[in-house]
């Protein structure tokens, strides 16, 4: 089996994050062979990136995004594309001090993902996230 694709489109707003949770839950229900811990961590990373897009979305409430999740044997891959302004932060930023109240999203995503890429192409931001692990035997 080549794997399943789950996708959604909408606005990069907080309620869109809820839709991502539901989509990932749906994928997990369809794929009991995916280790729940892997999916849980992958969901955490996806939501951190999505949070980041929502927080930086300008004009606020008008940025659109498109999300796709690929469930393959041994691998979870997600792509998120948004129409917002270019992301100017550092996706490789280090984990902040323990008493910091912000700045953990990107380093947390980094800690979870095996591959994490950002690119700016055709006036859109493109985020690609991959986690490999005990998600069934690789073929």
């Amino acid at each position: 089996m080549a794997g399943d694709v789950y996708s959604l489109e909408g606005f990069a707003v907080p309620s869109g994050i809820e839709e991502l949770h539901l989509l990932l839950d749906h994928a997990g229900s369809d794929h009991p062979e995916v280790d729940p811990s892997d999916l849980m961590l992958f969901e955490t990373a996806v939501v951190e990136i999505a949070n980041n897009v929502v927080e930086h979305a300008r004009p606020e409430g008008e940025v659109r995004w498109r999300f796709a999740l690929h469930v393959r044997p041994g691998e979870l891959e997600a792509t998120l594309s948004d129409s917002g302004t270019p992301y100017l932060g550092d996706i490789g930023t280090a984990m902040p001090d323990e008493l910091a109240e912000r700045g953990r999203g990107m380093p947390l995503a980094h800690a979870i993902l095996d591959e994490f890429h950002y690119s700016r192409v055709d006036s859109a931001n493109h985020w690609r996230m991959v986690r490999r692990g005990s998600t069934g035997p690789a073929s």
């Binding site: 939501v47 951190e48 109240e101 947390l108």
Partner: peptide
């Protein structure tokens, strides 16, 4: 059931 980095920030803020 789930916490993100905003939630972690709230816990740290509450701790302080």
């Amino acid at each position: 059931e789930f916490i993100d980095s905003s939630g972690l920030g709230a816990l740290v803020g509450g701790l302080k």
